[in-house]
Every structure is written in C-alpha cells, then in structure tokens.
Simulated assay, not measured.
Amino acid sequence: MWTVQDAKNKFSAVVDAALAGTPQEVTRRGKPAVVVLSADEYHRLVEGAVKARGSFAEHLMAFPGGDFPRASATLRDVSF
C-alpha cells in the first residue's frame, strides 16, 4: 500500500509492481483512494463484467411484473 506522496515519488516502482501482477493500492489521508493495475488485468475485469451483465432487454424481461397489481382500465373508442 502506498500513500499518494510515496506513489508520486516512486511511480515507476508502482507501475512495475502492477505490471508484475500485483495491483497497487494508493491511499489519500489514510483512506483507500485508487488501485493501479496492469492494462491487461483491467481489460480482463471489464470483459468479465460485460459478459456477466445481460442486455437491457433481458433486464426488462426479468422484471417481476406479476408481483405488482396492475390497474384495470376499460378501453374506450376514440375517433380522430
């Protein structure tokens, strides 16, 4: 774990460690702020998230519509 100041001073070491496969956590004022990881690892994570997420249509189709009572309305003829 690195502080922001240490990470700035030793950025090459932070990048080298991330490229070696160990994500590097950077803190600001004692709290976790960011994680530096290799581009390959980032793309792997993003690709996995995209695959796990269904389409918007699948999301809508999965909506539990039967759990909510629907308003019953009578249709009326309208002429234009």
Rank of each mutant, 00 (worst) to 15 (best):
P23V: 01
P64R: 13
D6P: 03
G48C: 12
Q24H: 06
A20K: 14
H59V: 09
D67T: 01
L60D: 10
A73T: 05
S38I: 05
T27V: 05
S72R: 02
H43S: 10
E41F: 06
A18Q: 08
K31F: 02
G66Y: 08
S79T: 15
G54V: 04
V46Q: 15
R29G: 05
V26W: 00
D40E: 08
V50Q: 15
D67V: 04
R53M: 13
A7I: 01
A13M: 04
K10A: 08
E41P: 01
D77S: 11
P69C: 03
L75F: 13
A73F: 04
E58I: 00
F56A: 14
L45T: 08
A57K: 15
E58P: 06
P64A: 07
D16V: 04
G65V: 09
F63W: 12
T3I: 07
D6K: 07
K51I: 06
E41S: 07
L60Y: 13
A73W: 00
R70A: 10
T74S: 09
S38N: 01
R29V: 11
V35A: 03
A52S: 13
F80E: 14
L19R: 08
L19F: 00
D16T: 14
A7H: 10
A57Y: 13
H59Q: 02
M1P: 09
K10S: 15
A13Q: 08
G65Q: 15
F80L: 14
V78I: 09
L19I: 12
Y42C: 09
F80P: 07
M1S: 12
A49K: 14
A62H: 09
E58C: 10
L37C: 00
A49I: 01
P23S: 06
P23Q: 02
F63G: 13
R70W: 11
T74M: 07
M61K: 15
F11C: 10
L75G: 11
T74W: 00
V78G: 10
E47Y: 08
S38P: 04
L75C: 07
A17G: 03
E25P: 05
P64K: 03
T22H: 05
F63Q: 11
S72A: 07
T27C: 01
A17S: 15
A73Y: 08
F68P: 04
R76S: 15
A20L: 12
G21T: 08
D40H: 03
R76M: 12
V14W: 06
V46G: 04
M1T: 00
N9K: 12
P32M: 09
R76N: 14
V15W: 03
V50L: 10
P64T: 03
R76W: 08
S12L: 09
S12P: 02
G21W: 00
F63C: 14
V4A: 03
V15K: 03
A17M: 06
F11H: 09
